Amino acid sequence: MAVDSLPATARKITANIGAHYVDKARILPWRSPPGSNLPDPYHVWLSEIMLQQTTVGAVKSYFEKFTRRWPTVQDLARADEADVMAAWAGLGYYARARNLHKCAVDVTEKMNGIFPRKESELLGLPGVGAYTAAAIAAIAFGERAVVVDANIERLVARLFAIDTPLPKGKTEIRAAMDAITPKQGAGDFAQACMDMGATICTSKNPKCDICPVQKQCAAHALGTMEYFPVKPAKRAKPVRRARFFWIEQQDRILLATRPPKGMLGGMRALPDDGWAAGNDGHATPPMAGEWRVHDNIVQHSFTHFSLEVDLAVYQDEKIVTNSDDNIWWALDDIAEAGLPTLYAKAVKWKLKEEI
């Protein structure tokens, strides 16, 4: 259904979604109520970075923890990157945390702690892509910007029955969102559409009976709501193998810092065998000695591959390692180490296995 052939329908969609938001807006810690003063740009930016490929439910506690610990972008810029990475642990996609800190430093040192308001300028910040720049410009600064996240993508594809498969269909979906985005209040409208996608126009079993734009929805008229958006066929994920190493002494465990580049870069973790997205690990232990191997204790899914993890436990009493590289961490305080979820799963398995 061509958007440009339905100007009256587009106006009705905009009005109905806007009115629904006034009555039914989700209360979120980074939001301002509909029609009120614009929210703090720092809060909008922080929440949008956290929300990339992560659910609202998972982000709430992290957002509150970060803003308590680092109330301003300047506070975050002054933080040690290792502390930021540890506080991020569990949210996944750790490049976001590195870019978060780098962006805070750039805004503080190069922009006097003031976020740029224009979409084009926001795109120059570390970790800020097209969607995030549009969202910050619209929500934090009231600029007219076309915001399209996964929820909006699904909502708009259904409203206009856009059947071009993704990712090619993204161009048509953005054009359709552009057609219904108002000149004033683009931030509230974007958040209204996000809420619609999250709570009503869901992937499975959409709640069409309470949808404020049911009568304007082309997919509903066709009875094919769950057909949209049209996605390409899924490819089977490759399965990689990794081995983690458990070295314990006097109720402390040996941790390592992962290389700054690559997956989970800069994070504290158990020593491992150099596994990567493109290859299995070598399974060679970091030091000679007697090791007991527990096979396949953790299965973890990444976006493009799955990982099966063995855990090798050091059995000898004598431990000889390079002291310059050691991070000995008290097992009682292991939750404070900020281990990525993958490694935290292995620690949890080992501690439970000992009970």
Rank of each mutant, 00 (worst) to 15 (best):
V3N: 01
D4A: 14
D4S: 14
S5V: 13
P7S: 08
A8P: 02
I13Q: 00
T14M: 12
G35A: 06
S36C: 10
L46Y: 00
Y62H: 06
R68T: 14
R69V: 05
Q74A: 12
D75M: 03
L76G: 00
D80Q: 14
M85S: 05
G90I: 10
A95S: 13
R96K: 08
R96Q: 06
A97S: 09
A97F: 08
K102D: 10
C103I: 06
S120V: 13
L123Q: 07
Y131L: 03
A134R: 00
A135I: 06
A137Q: 00
G142V: 04
G142Y: 01
R144D: 06
F160E: 01
P165G: 08
P165Q: 07
I173S: 01
D178K: 11
K183S: 14
G187M: 04
A190T: 07
D195Y: 06
T202N: 07
K204M: 11
K207W: 09
C208Y: 09
K215C: 14
A218E: 11
H220K: 12
E226M: 05
F228L: 01
K234Q: 15
K237S: 11
P238M: 05
V239P: 03
R241A: 12
E248G: 07
R258T: 06
P260N: 12
G265Y: 01
R268C: 06
P271Q: 04
D273H: 04
G278H: 03
G278C: 10
W291I: 03
W291S: 03
V293W: 07
F302E: 00
T303L: 02
V313K: 01
Y314A: 01
D316E: 11
V320G: 10
N326A: 15
G338S: 02
T341Q: 11
A344W: 05
K348L: 14
W349T: 10
K350D: 06
K352Y: 08
E353I: 13
E353S: 15
I355F: 13
